[in-house]
């Protein structure tokens, strides 16, 4: 990823593109075309080891969602994330023709989430580590 200012990614294996237009890095099987996220070294569908990295689509549709209403335990969450906990949305976003990716959502109001709505990849600070970015999906207007 091209850096425009000081930040670190939660895991450089996961995220490519630029800070303005980040891309998730998955993998695609040369044998059967199966797309996975994160990148895998072998194909979970056909067992082939001929698997290449692939930048995934940035837009998709919300396939399911929930709101995380209690602070996760640390570990595996960060202690700072527990301290500053606010409820957050979580969902699976279906990237057309590729895969459904689980992610944080920038929206945490249950009234404003519905299955089938359009979502776009973005980056958010990791709770409890503000200099570190992780990926999330944000709702987009149909004409955006």
């Amino acid at each position: 990823m091209t850096k425009t200012r000081q930040f670190r990614l939660i895991d450089p294996e996961l995220i490519g593109g630029t800070e303005q237009v980040p891309r998730l890095i998955g993998s695609v099987c040369a044998g059967c075309g199966t797309v996975t996220f994160p990148r895998q070294r072998s194909c979970p569908r056909c067992t082939s080891e001929d698997v290449q990295p692939r930048e995934l689509a940035i837009r998709g549709e919300l396939w399911s969602w929930t709101i995380q209403c209690f602070a996760p335990k640390a570990p595996p969450y960060l202690p700072g994330g527990v301290e500053e906990f606010e409820p957050y949305g979580v969902g699976y976003v279906e990237l057309p023709g590729e895969v459904r990716v689980e992610a944080r959502l920038t929206e945490s109001d249950p009234e404003r989430l519905r299955i089938g709505m359009s979502m776009e990849l973005t980056l958010i600070p990791v709770p409890g580590a503000s200099d570190t970015l992780t990926f999330a999906f944000r709702p987009v207007e149909e004409d955006e």
């Binding site: 939660i10 399911s64 969602w65 929930t66 595996p76 992610a103 409890g128």
Partner: peptide, 19 residues
Amino acid sequence: GSWYGETGLMLTTQFFALK
């Protein structure tokens, strides 16, 4: 990877809710 837990996704309750 540890990113999954740090991002706040490593919860069985989330899975059941999403499903």
